[in-house]
């Protein structure tokens, strides 16, 4: 039950993008087409699950026992950067076509603040090992959901008559605001 609660809360109630404002840069940058946004979302989800596992291990087996909490930022970001590098190399070997499709987005995942944010949050809340992985998965799914929703709306907007000044970023922010309002409706769910 608690697992379902953590997952649903990360996906809907406290959606990482629309409610917590984490990962806004890729949210605005790669939400022009549903296909690319889905690829980006899946790659990010994968890195999140791996990063949540590894940062839990680092926190509980290295930082906490040796009393080094001030190294948290440095340690986590290094782990995330090397995880992204690993994932990149793995995808390149395992499926070159997928690698080509996601090429440019993969290295960008390092600077997605949703991932470091998730790692810091799971330490702050002292989740257990299993809960951390579920939290990472939920965060990734929530990110993907928000990204694909915005991409779907932006694809339709291509043909709409928008005031010149709002074209591009302006209207995208306003749509994101409306989406965020919709997600506000989940507030009482959990």
């Amino acid at each position: 039950m608690e697992i379902a609660l953590i997952f649903l809360s990360a996906v809907f109630v406290n959606n990482f993008v629309l409610v917590r404002f984490l990962g806004i840069c890729p949210f605005m940058g790669v939400s022009r087409q549903i296909e690319t946004s889905l690829g980006m979302g899946l790659a990010t989800t994968f890195v999140m699950v791996v990063a949540s596992t590894v940062s839990w291990l680092i926190q509980n087996f290295i930082l906490a026992p040796y009393n080094l909490p001030y190294l948290q930022n440095v340690a986590f970001i290094l782990v995330i950067a090397s995880m992204v590098q690993l994932v990149e190399m793995f995808i390149n070997k395992a499926s070159p076509s997928l690698y080509k499709a996601m090429g440019i987005f993969l290295p960008l995942i390092t600077t997605n603040c949703a991932i470091l944010g998730m790692a810091l949050l799971l330490v702050m809340r002292s989740y257990s090992f299993g809960h951390s992985i579920i939290f990472g998965l939920g965060a990734g799914v929530g990110f993907t959901l928000a990204l694909v929703l915005l991409a779907g709306i932006r694809e339709e907007l291509e043909f709409a008559d928008i005031p010149d000044a709002l074209k591009g970023a302006g209207i995208a922010f306003i749509i994101a605001g409306l989406l965020s309002m919709a997600f506000g409706g989940f507030a009482g769910l959990v």
Binding site: P163, A165, F173, G177, G184
Partner: peptide, 21 residues
Amino acid sequence: IMSLPPGAFISLGVLVGLLNV
């Protein structure tokens, strides 16, 4: 609503538009 998350997105969208003008 302006203090809640949707207000942030909407204010930034409108400000970007205004500054463009």
